[in-house]
């Protein structure tokens, strides 16, 4: 119940900030208006609760932001170069990546981050299993696929270390050992088939 109230207060705060930014000036009037509008919005359009269980870590957030911007710039120029100068027909792949932390928030943030970096597009996701199906652009061989899977896990790693709870971070390392131990070229798919 307390967590639920906290989620709503957080959502109202974010909406109020958006409202104040839209007005472009901070005053008591815009603040009060923002609070009123955000509470109305939350009451009229109740969203499925997204639980924010962790806490914000400054170092993790900074690392996430810096890596995100570099990825965005590098990959944008790569894609632009392929578009302008590419001679061969670019090949692609659709790969499944199982995330280690299965909360809705982590799934959403990872999907957003992965699809903002050019060269990857979320085609589908399995919410219950925490699997993202990602279309990877300009793949030349299996090594690219393997490398990309590692990249996605690194992104998840950075996100969880930026906004996750301690339990989620520990889950990150323990499950990781398990999957690398089995040398899973296709994580999730194999274990799942054998467990059923």
């Amino acid at each position: 119940m307390i967590a639920r109230a906290r989620d709503r207060i957080l959502a109202a705060a974010v909406l109020t900030v958006v409202w104040v930014l839209l007005w472009g000036s901070f005053s008591l009037l815009t603040l009060a208006g923002g609070l009123l509008v955000s509470m109305l919005t939350l009451a009229v359009f109740p969203l499925p609760p997204v639980t924010f269980a962790g806490r914000l870590r400054l170092g993790g957030l900074l690392r996430l932001a810096v890596r995100f911007v570099t990825d965005l710039v590098v990959a944008s120029f790569q894609l632009a170069w392929t578009a302008l100068a590419g001679r061969r027909v670019p090949r692609s792949a659709v790969i499944a990546v199982r995330l280690r932390v299965r909360s809705d928030l982590n799934l959403t943030l990872c999907a957003e981050a992965v699809s903002l970096v050019p060269g990857s597009l979320i085609v589908d996701m399995d919410r219950a299993e925490g699997v993202l199906y990602i279309h990877v652009f300009d793949v030349t061989g299996p090594s690219d696929v393997y490398r990309f899977r590692g990249d996605v896990r690194d992104i998840e790693d950075r996100i969880v270390r930026a906004v996750g709870s301690d339990a989620e971070i520990s889950c990150l390392t323990s499950v990781y050992d398990e999957t690398t131990g089995s040398g899973a070229e296709r994580p999730g798919m194999i274990d799942e088939g054998s467990s059923r």
């Binding site: 090949r91 699997v131 798919m189």
Partner: peptide, 16 residues
């Protein structure tokens, strides 16, 4: 054009 398609593999699984 797809080198790998793991979504097709996953969707090809039994319906259960």
């Amino acid at each position: 054009l797809l080198l790998v398609d793991e979504l097709a593999d996953a969707r090809g699984r039994p319906a259960a």
